[in-house]
Write a protein that binds this DNA or RNA. Structure first.
Lengths: 258, 258
DNA sequence: GGTCGGCATTGATCTGCATCAAGGCGTCGC
DNA sequence: GCGACGCCTTGATGCAGATCAATGCCGACC
């Protein structure tokens, strides 16, 4: 249900502090009581492990926050002051090298949790790709909340295990697949993730830029573009504004599977 | 302290069953009472979270098992019948594509735990690189043991978070680094891991084959060989039998950092 | 409505690593 | 001792994808 989103300390030297998150008063922050009740992603997220009264308690800790596209939720290496549950929009998680090369390690969709590992520093940076809404919890508060709720910890561990599995799939993709296979696998993967959160369709929205896709697949923007054009020529898909329509699952599956 | 070792279900179709593990009577299996007491890796492993009496209990669940080089501990997609703590030797964890392409997602060293995620199927295959000794626990028994020990679950979650961080580092390496950088980062990483388990040295043993290194770094065996030769020409290291001696941390660091 | 800037596409060329090929070297079995 | 095999190194060549460059497209802003 998720893509890479565990945050934790790494051995690397880190820079920057967490961006100011308490912008209450600017209108994009609410201590929204009862927000959990009609939360669209609750059943997909870690919160599904909680009893109603526990959910109420969590509700009181949460803060709904909106991030416009291209704004940063937190930076790689910053003190981890908060954990997040994405409820709307798409967030990119990435690591960068000093010379600017960037690897996107995952796109977080609604229902995904950022900060699963509850470590004291973020291991990746997170930026809104499209306008995003999140449920924000102070890390300290969330930590003491989890303490004494083994079933929640268990669920978070399950999520973490799933994250790692996806990370390992991505390693296989990055290390051993060619451009066609990478792009096909990416599109089918994204389609399956949309389906799981209730958006089943052969039209796959691509809110992220070609550069983002390239940085996720270990390619260049030109290769992504050419590959999409080639797949379109082969009638495997059609490129539409802000997305693709998948025409031949057979052809795409064949590429993605191997 | 670890490399990729969480095991879990993936979305892929899987084949094979777990290999027969109960070969007691052949001499490579012991229900060794008290094995934990003089365990060399206890303080590095998840077990360090346990109280003496808890350790005794765990001891009774454990089974010491030896795997000769090149034997398989478990296969990708098999029912996860057991979890493991590596105590000696090196284990490779990998995923394969139908056409035989292989990606090693991690090398497990003494202290590393295999099956952290406690899912019902293994997401990767595991094979001994060098003769390996492990502490084996039936998954069901371990699961009920962990149940009611939140501090152990917490520690396993910490390990899982660390694993994911390493996986994300590896994604950056696979997607965005060139051959020189990959090899340098690999060697420094391995050296640091040996140091943490008490083997601090500028001579880094390489028990795995060039093919294994290539499959870990997303390269070919020839490129790994040429890169080592080149680094040796540059006086950054010397290739020695079954390993390398690191001569210039500066040069290697410069490559590995970026 | 026009210009500007960001993003995507397409073409030409280059290059890092893969592929193909040939030995070298150490170890094992007989 | 020596042939065979596995593993590694080295060299020659090829190619997938990177790089360089030009153009198109569209929405924002004045």
């Amino acid at each position: 249900m998720t893509l890479a989103s565990l945050e934790m300390t790494t051995d690397h030297a880190m820079t920057f502090a967490e961006l100011p998150a308490d912008t209450c008063g600017t209108g994009d922050c609410k201590h929204a009581r009862g927000a959990c009740d009609d939360c669209k992603v609750r059943l997909f997220s870690v919160c599904a492990a909680l009893e109603p009264d526990e959910l109420d308690e969590l509700d009181r800790l949460s803060q709904v926050k909106n991030y416009p596209a291209k704004t940063m939720l937190f930076d790689q290496g910053a003190q981890a002051g908060a954990v997040f549950n994405v409820t709307e929009g798409v967030v990119r998680l990435y690591k960068s090298l000093p010379d600017g090369r960037r690897q996107i390690v995952g796109f977080a969709l609604p229902g995904d949790f950022l900060g699963l590992a509850m470590m004291d520093r973020y291991g990746v940076a997170a930026e809104a790709v499209s306008p995003a809404r999140v449920c924000r919890f102070s890390r300290a508060a969330f930590l003491s909340y989890v303490d004494g709720k083994p079933h929640l910890l268990r669920r978070m561990h399950e999520f973490a295990g799933h994250e790692l599995s996806l990370a390992q799939d991505q390693m296989l993709l990055l290390g051993r697949r060619n451009a066609d296979e990478k792009v096909a696998a990416f599109l089918l993967n994204l389609q399956a993730r949309y389906a799981r959160i209730g958006q089943k369709s052969v039209t796959v929205p691509l809110p992220m830029s070609r550069q983002d896709i390239a940085d996720y697949l270990g390619l260049t923007i030109e290769t992504v573009s050419r590959t999409l054009t080639k797949l379109a020529k082969d009638k495997a898909l059609v490129v539409v504004p802000d997305g693709v329509r998948l025409l031949s699952m057979d052809k795409l599956d064949a590429l993605a599977a191997a």
